[in-house]
Amino acid sequence: MSGARQSALATLRGQIERIETAEVVHEHGRVALGHGEIDSVLKGGLARAAIHEVFCEGRQAAAATGFVMGLAGRVSARRPLLWVRQDFSEVETGALSMSGLAELGLDPRRVVTVRAADVESALRTSADALACDALGAVVLELWGETRQFDLVASRKLTLAAQGSGVTGLMLRMAAQPLPSTAETRWMLRAAHSPPGAAWSAWGAPRFDAELLRNRHGQCGRWIMEWNCDECQFSEPSTYPQPVAAAPAHRPDPAISWQRRAG
């Protein structure tokens, strides 16, 4: 076998390996979310240049939107954000409000919204956008179960994201997880505001986030809070902290699962 042929084979193998294992991810780095346990489970934070999926039930749509906006705010690093959404989801759960976004501490000036009429055009637009390295993040918001968002579509998006370094966030409302090439997959619910006096400030976005899939680490379930002033997630401040820190690589489900009624 000639040397040239061997080296060609080696190149091809290398390419396949990169596609398969998504090791490219590490070139673009990770962004810490601000929640200690989650960051350690994610090996330093949310991977850039990858696809992340956030699922929720229909009525939890606003909480999931807040979570996705938080992730997008963390990964996009002052770069523009493209929000692709289906016409239908606006009817179901309201339009993304820029005033609300500003209240979360994020910058509405950097948001460009695409109103896609159907899933096909939404998917195609997101694939295009993910290939454009000027963007910080692309959010694709889909309502309900869709046949079109299958493994092939998901692979396409992943490849585009890896090529450009743009992070793709899939917000899947009222849908069940399907096999995909996502780096992480989350199930989101709203969490109660911390108990306190009636006049105390409440209502900071608080999420009950369950990490269902993590290509490079453990899964788990945590309560997260979005800190609007510092623009990052944090541990719920008023929840009792575990006495001993849970080992980073193996979060104790008994601790992270507990939820207190408000």
């Binding site: 993304l96 209240e103 400030a201």
Partner: peptide, 15 residues
């Protein structure tokens, strides 16, 4: 936005 206040406007608004 006002510092150290929770969000006063909703993230999703019905038309």
């Amino acid at each position: 936005r006002t510092e150290s206040e929770p969000p006063l406007r909703p993230l999703r608004l019905f038309e």
